[in-house]
Structures are given as C-alpha cells and as structure tokens.
C-alpha cells in the first residue's frame, strides 16, 4: 500500500532541511496546544479521586463538590490501610498478578507466533475460534467454570486465577498476532537460510522486535489481575487469601460507602502503577523504529 511506494524513493535531503525543521517546530507547538487542554480533561477523574481521598467524612457530602479539601485529611491514608489487611492482600494480589503475567506472556506469544508466522492448515480456524471465545459474554460461563474448578478441587486456591493464564489468553494472542504479522517476512527467511530453528527465529528475531507489544501485554494482564473482583470473590473462600479488589469492597458499609477511605486506598495502590508506567515508557516505545533494521 501507500507505505511501500514511498519507501522506494529514498533520496538525500538537503534543500528542504531548514524549512522542514521550521514546520516541525510549528507542528510541535500545535501538539502542545492540543495536548494541554485535553490533558486537563483527562485528569479530571484522577483529580477527583485525589481530592476525595483527602476529604473529611463531612466534606464528601458537600454539594456542589469541593475540589480542594479544607482541611486536608491526610490521616485518611493510614486509616484506609488499616481498614483491611492491606499488605497481606497486596502481597496476595502481586503473587497472582506476577505468576499470571509470566504465564500469559510466554504462552500467548508462542501461540501468536504460530498464528502469525507459521503456515499450517488449521491455523485460520484456530484463529477464528480464538477471537470467537471473546464473543460469548462471560456471565454465562461463570457457573460451569466454577463447577469444573470444583471438580479439579481448585476452590479456595489461587489455581483458577493463575493456571489458565499459562495456557494463553485470546485477547493477548490476537494482539500479539497483529504485531507479529507486521514484522517483515524477510527477517524470518534470512534466519531460516542461516539454519535457525523456528524456535530460535521466534526467540531471537520476532520477540525482540515486538517489545512494545509484549510490554503492553504485561501491562494489561497486570491491570486485569489487579482489578479482577469476580474471580477472587467466587474462588477464594478464606479471607486471608483475598486480594486488593476484594479489599476495596471492605469500604462499602450497609447503607453508605467510606468514599474518602476507598479513594485513599485506591490512590495508594494506583500511584506506584502510574510511576511505573511513566518510568517504563521506553519499553513501550522501542520497536522496529528504534532498534532499527540494521544489517
């Protein structure tokens, strides 16, 4: 398509260089102008969470809502953390999340490789089935899945929350397949001529080039585990095994919710994720464009 034709006509840039730099600068200015106001709009939910987390009991009820709390209730944070076994639940959640992330990463990338880069007869059918599994609303498979895990004697363990991840996830397989498909076939061909096995091609050529996609998979799976409420709720029966998302439901009282504490706890959990996302940006943006197709 368009990309190819343009790529063929590489010529040396000289004359337009200065003009180009000028336009690029103008472009960036416009970029900021568009990004800044939109950023404010996108920060509203977060600001609100922050502001609620710092309100006293009474201030939460003020209408119209106040954005800057006065006084600032810093003690909401220690109170929120003391409201449920915060550190234990956090450790539980991280255990589940890390194991599930590893499983998803390994299995989904293998399967996606099969679907994207190996030509075999059943592959399109398997791909179709993979995408189709996402189309049946999960609400109607909860019960039979629970019954099945009961038969496995997996109830009240973390196995239902971790083991399936090691067999791949449709969303991630589909995602990685799309990325693997964009990697030039010549790379694999060259490797094959060099006598590399399929696994080596996968491991040494395709995976490194798909780094942003792999990071995305890790991020999404992490968030999915972090948020999963239903799974831990029905599979875990011993409160000592509970996770953070169940912990957040501790703030719901009979006729009201401890909003300020709920927000404080959520914030305590969210800020490290935000920092991490911010700091690992490079992982998300290093693909072919940066690692380059040198050789």
């Amino acid at each position: 398509m368009g990309g190819e034709t343009v790529a063929c006509q590489v010529s040396t840039a000289t004359g337009g260089a200065r003009r180009r730099r000028f336009w690029r600068r103008i472009g960036r200015l416009w970029g900021h102008l568009a990004l800044i106001p939109l950023s404010i709009v996108y920060m509203i939910p977060f600001f609100w969470m922050l502001s609620t987390a710092l309100k006293t009991d009474r201030q939460v009820m003020v209408w119209p809502p106040v954005w800057i709390p006065n006084p600032i209730a810093w003690d909401n944070f220690p109170r929120a953390i003391a409201f449920f076994p915060f550190w234990r639940f956090l450790a539980n959640t991280l255990t589940i999340a890390v194991l599930a992330m590893l499983g998803i990463l390994i299995s989904s990338s293998l399967v996606a490789y099969s679907l994207a880069r190996i030509r075999w007869p059943g592959r399109d059918l398997l791909f179709g089935i993979t995408v189709a599994t996402m189309m049946l609303p999960y609400q109607v498979t909860i019960i039979p899945l629970f019954v099945q895990f009961t038969r496995f004697k997996w109830i009240n363990t973390y196995l239902p929350l971790i083991v399936p991840a090691w067999f791949g996830g449709a969303f991630y397989i589909f995602l990685l397949r799309q990325f693997f498909m964009t990697i030039p076939q010549e790379l694999s061909d060259a490797a094959r001529i060099d006598g590399a096995s399929e696994f080596r091609t996968f491991y040494q050529i395709v995976l490194p080039l798909a780094r942003p996609a792999l990071a995305t998979v890790l991020l999404f799976e992490f968030l999915a585990r972090w948020r999963d409420f239903q799974g831990p709720l029905i599979y875990l029966q011993d409160p000592r095994k509970y996770t953070i998302s169940l912990g957040l439901s501790y703030f719901r009282l009979e006729h009201s919710t401890e909003w300020q504490l709920l927000m404080a706890a959520s914030l305590t959990l969210t800020i490290p994720i935000i920092m991490l996302y911010f700091l690992t940006q490079r992982t998300f943006i290093q693909g072919i464009a940066l690692t380059g197709l040198k050789g």
Binding site: S108, V111, S114, L115, I118, R123, T133
Partner: peptide, 26 residues
Amino acid sequence: IVNGLLFAAPWILGLLLFYVYPIFSS
C-alpha cells in the same frame, strides 16, 4: 504443521481444559 501445532499447543490444550465445557454447558 508440526511447528504450528507445537507453538499453538498451550492454547489448544487451554481451550480443551477451560473453554469447551463451560461454553457447551452454556
């Protein structure tokens, strides 16, 4: 064929283990 199946094996197994029964039950 062999490689394709081997790479896809985890997911094929996963489908059989965790999807077939719930989907057909529903």
